[in-house]
Amino acid sequence: MKTIDALGVYYRKLNDSIDSAIKTDKNITLSGVFGQRYIGRGLSKGVKIKIQGVPGNDMAAYMDGAEIEVFGNAQDAVGNTMNAGRIVIHGRCGDTLGYSMRGGEIYVEGNVGYRVGIHMKEYKDMKPVIVAGGKAGDFLGEYMAGGAIILLGLDLAEGEEIIGRFCGTGIHGGKIYINGNPDKYNFGKEVEKVSLRDEDIAFLKNHVDLYAKFFKKDLSHLKLEAFAKYAAVNKNPYSNAYCSN
């Protein structure tokens, strides 16, 4: 495994050195990462990167199969338009996590920011998943068109809310699973609560187990059947909004 010291290295140079490093060793560690953007952009299957520090915006943008593990927090737009691969973040994450991602998995140990999973999609076998251990900000899953978001809401303080406002606004595909009973929140009008089925429980178990494994947590106390599931009222929400002129 090769280690690249990223401290003070400009992002373009850092990404170039990752490109050349993976030609000989697909397992690399970046130390001293401090806000460099686009780490892992477009990287393909087989590449595994461990990041020590805080990667900058658009980490794993257009990523196509690589695996990234971050030992620290991450910034905005992680996994932007990602196609495949896996991201594990031992910390918190900023806004627009998984914007428009079409495939792959993102696991965040703690809280995530605003507009997470916005316009996530799916296509055939490609079904992206975002699992966050904490809470999420406003507009979770806005315009969501596919895939799944799982929000565990672990370790919330008294009175702390698991989601913000307008969750699922404009949603026309995909699923949002939220731990607990979040009916009191102000959801978007295009989303509705649907009943949890056996396959949902199996799906949740699979991803919760992986979360527990990645972050070395005992989640045996989580009641998966107590999760609330939300989905689009209609996959063609605007079909009656127009008249041809």
């Binding site: 905005d76 737009a77 932007n80 627009t96 914007y99 507009r115 916005i118 316009h119 999609k121 799916e122 296509y123 055939k124 806005e142 315009y143 068109a145 596919g146 404009g170 026309h172 595909g173 996959k235 063609n236 929400p237 605007y238 079909s239």
Partner: peptide, 15 residues
């Protein structure tokens, strides 16, 4: 995107 699904391009880029 799946067959029959609306393809919605939001007004702004959300990033």
């Amino acid at each position: 995107i799946p067959v029959g699904s609306d393809a919605i391009s939001p007004a702004p880029h959300h990033d």
